[in-house]
Amino acid sequence: MSLLSADALVKEFGGLRAVDGLSVSVEAGELVGVIGPNGAGKSTLFNCISGVVTPDEGVVTYDGTEVTGDPPEALARRGLVRTFQATRELETMTVRDNVRLAAPDQPGEQTVPALVRTESMQTVEQSVRTRADELLETFELDHLADEYSANLSGGQRKLLELARALMLDPSVLMLDEPFAGVNPTLTDEIAEHIRELNENGMTVVIIEHELETLTELVDRLVVLQQGRVLVDGQPEDVLSDDRVIEAYLGGGV
């Protein structure tokens, strides 16, 4: 039984079938890359799985239960956490608060504990702060902790988004183009973080355009085309597949 699977997903926008009978599954502990040309349905697949949009047909299963159409907040609380393609920072909040926000199970997020400032809220907040500071340090954002996140550069935003997602201590981390618009040095750095997380047992799914980094990083590559799975296999096999070369490079090599 795989940890996360999507079975025969269909999602239409108007007359466009963005995802057309797509099935993928991810085992616990895997590091899977999803690639495909623009409009292949990568982001829609992510949105369907993470509950941002509800698929028209098909079933999403996570950790043994069907979660099709469950809202993103419910999935996040169960450990299925995603990032966004165009980084979405909480720009009007500081870097520190961006990360602290994601802390799960904070009793101070309810009215009564917040009003009476319960002991448990203070204790939890203390550990939230420690954990958030650790993450900021890991991602070398600690010197920017008090900066509003609107002032961060593109690469720093990617790091912040990763730190924020990790605050939830996810079982499955779904990254939508974590290397887009990031310089090569930082790309290597982010890739290293991802590899480390995966080695420590986290299941990671990555959507990406940038092939080189991804093929070195992942255990398995899934290639999408026009809302369907084109090829699914080992990175070396996938990259030498004629259909992939045809689809990805437009055939004109």
Partner: peptide, 16 residues
């Protein structure tokens, strides 16, 4: 304040 900034992000970190 997170909801004011971006509701979808707030949902995707597990807040109703």
């Amino acid at each position: 304040r997170a909801i004011r900034a971006d509701e979808l992000v707030t949902r995707s970190v597990g807040k109703s």
